[in-house]
Amino acid sequence: MADGRGTIRRRAGLRLWLAGGWLALLALAAILAPWIAPADPLAQDLLGGRLPPIWVRGADPQYLLGTDSLGRDVLSRILWGARIALIVAALAGTATALIGATLGLLAGFLRGWVDLLISRLIDIWMAFPPVLFSILLIAVTGPGLGPIILAIVVIDWTRFARVVRAEAMAQGAMDYVASARVAGRGRIGTMLREILPNVVPTIVVLLTLEMGISVIVEAILSFVNLSISTDQPTWGGMIAEGRTSIHQAWWVLVFPLIALFLTVLSFSQLGEGLKDRFDPVLR
């Protein structure tokens, strides 16, 4: 079986490098967007609407990936949209992880009524259709970056809470926890010093996956026109526009879709790759 494991590790390694590479590239593009974007992402060119990408006949070399119906440069909008996508991914992912993992840790380690309360909440949350719930929350709070992050945290905390709770329970039953207690460590101390370090790998994996989910949620909300304000280019907004003009200008949909696809795939492959790395059996 040694050979089999070797292949798995090599494949996992390649996967981590490809996923990490794309995300690093994207982060770089997002940071440098104001300098490398060939045009103003909001500048309209009403005479140059729906120009195809440069390798298609009838293109304008000024617009590498073509323009949308208002004559805005698709490439520049993708680069600026990467900013929103990555900001949402980082902030919403981290906030969700913090809140969800804390609740899961408390429920799994303290047990008793805390666990009962948190588990009931998780059950209730699991009975909500998540997309509808997020749309509802944004309708209540109004669009914007803050509300989107809030909506993601409110909806997705259960992803962390469920897993971390189970893991904390399993860890809490182990001998080393009992000996820490015997050695005189308090309950909260045991939770933070003994249990938490052992669930961190799981949290990191879930966080990576959550970042990908956040990017999608933002795109879905933009798609139903409920995301950031319309004068911020977002991938979801571009996709919504592209969907309506799909028969006249495929490139308005295709390029942001490719960016979204690769980003979501990379986050999840990064998460899966890390999971394998952390798994003692495969290591």
């Binding site: 990908g212 996709i239 799909i246 028969h247 495929w250 949909l253 879709l257 696809f261 979501v264």
Partner: peptide, 18 residues
């Protein structure tokens, strides 16, 4: 598994609708 239904929907629209 990594790609959610929303993105598959868009990809299918492009491939088999357009």
């Amino acid at each position: 598994l990594s790609i959610p239904d929303f993105l598959w929907g868009l990809i299918l629209i492009l491939l088999f609708g357009v």
